[in-house]
């Protein structure tokens, strides 16, 4: 059987399939349904320095092959996460990646420092691209200088593997990927949700309480594949492909265009075991095509131009 192990810097995963931030809670929510230890890693829902309540409902709205959301990053704060959820996660062998966010660089640094002291955190994913926070966090995702500053600041604050999660709504994703690499990131993940909107034509009001939100789900997958392809060509550091994976084929596309690993997001809502089904499908594909490992398949896109 093919070797499924992959590494993102010092983050060692026994499979290349993670579950994406915001779609798997903090772990306990799915623990009765999914064998957490079979996942490549759990990326927990975004954590900030202080507790946050999040947006008014409606927080999600189903679109064709997609889900529009503006949850607003509700979270128990870094201390709440450490006391309420880390003890549970420590009982498992699955690596824990904590998605972090802040309204200022100082807030990012504070969360990163605190989590670096905590036992049971294996990597940090830096959320610079959530479109649902009004205080300006989105700027970190789309302004190259602001992005560089926040990644450099968090890098200086932690020795944990650092994975900035890139916003998709930029003109040149390669520039952001390179900026992350130059700032000392161990890997990058992309894409975050696409800024989007839906309107109820009867009430003429937005379908989301927040007005606008981010689109996820199968609808965004081909867009994500193109972004991952561009980012992977721009850098040497590992890339985690995220966006609309519902089956092994979707995940394999990311690997073929250059991703080291992938994360399953919205599809976990449809079927909690999607990530494990994808893992089995990748293993089967590698065996059928004679690839000894995930790494052997990576970036093997055939395209003569």
């Amino acid at each position: 059987m093919a070797d499924l192990q992959v590494s993102i810097g010092a983050l060692k995963m026994k499979t290349p399939v993670m579950v994406a931030s915001g779609t798997f809670g903090y772990g306990p929510e799915y623990a009765q349904l999914v064998d957490l230890n079979q996942l490549g890693a759990i990326v927990v829902k975004g954590i900030a320095s202080e507790p946050t309540k999040g947006n008014p409902p409606p927080r999600t709205f189903e679109t064709p092959s997609g889900l529009l959301n503006a949850i607003g990053l509700p979270n128990p704060g870094v201390e709440g996460f450490i006391t309420e959820y880390l003890p549970f996660l420590r009982q498992h062998t699955v690596p824990v990646v904590v998605n972090i966010w802040g309204r200022t660089i100082e807030e990012y640094v504070a969360v990163a420092r605190r989590l670096s002291e905590a036992d049971g955190v294996h990597a940090l994913e830096v959320n610079v691209s959530c479109p649902n926070i009004k205080e300006g966090s989105a700027l970190f995702g789309t302004d190259l200088d602001a992005f560089t500053r926040v990644v450099e600041a968090v890098r200086a604050a932690t020795t944990l593997p650092l994975i900035p999660k890139l916003a998709p709504n930029v003109a040149d994703i390669g520039a952001f990927a390179r900026a992350a690499e130059n700032a000392g990131a161990d890997g990058i993940s992309l894409i975050n949700s696409l800024p989007a909107m839906a309107v109820n034509i009867e009430t003429r009001r937005p379908e989301l309480g927040n007005g606008t939100g981010g689109l996820t789900g199968a609808a965004i997958h081909p867009f994500a594949v193109k972004m991952v392809w561009e980012a992977a060509r721009a850098v040497q550091i590992p890339v985690i492909g995220i966006g609309g994976i519902t089956n092994a084929r979707d995940a394999l596309e990311f690997l073929i265009v250059g991703a080291h690993a992938v994360a399953v997001g919205t599809a976990s809502f449809t079927d909690p075991n999607t990530a494990l089904d994808v893992t089995a499908g990748i293993a089967d594909y590698l065996d059928r095509h004679g690839y000894p490992s995930v790494d052997a398949l990576r970036g093997t896109l055939k395209w003569e131009r």
Binding site: G25, E29, R59, N69, S268
Partner: peptide, 12 residues
């Protein structure tokens, strides 16, 4: 949304 407490859609 998810029905199991992960997505935080159904809050009141």
């Amino acid at each position: 949304g998810c029905g199991v407490g992960a997505c935080l859609t159904c809050v009141l």
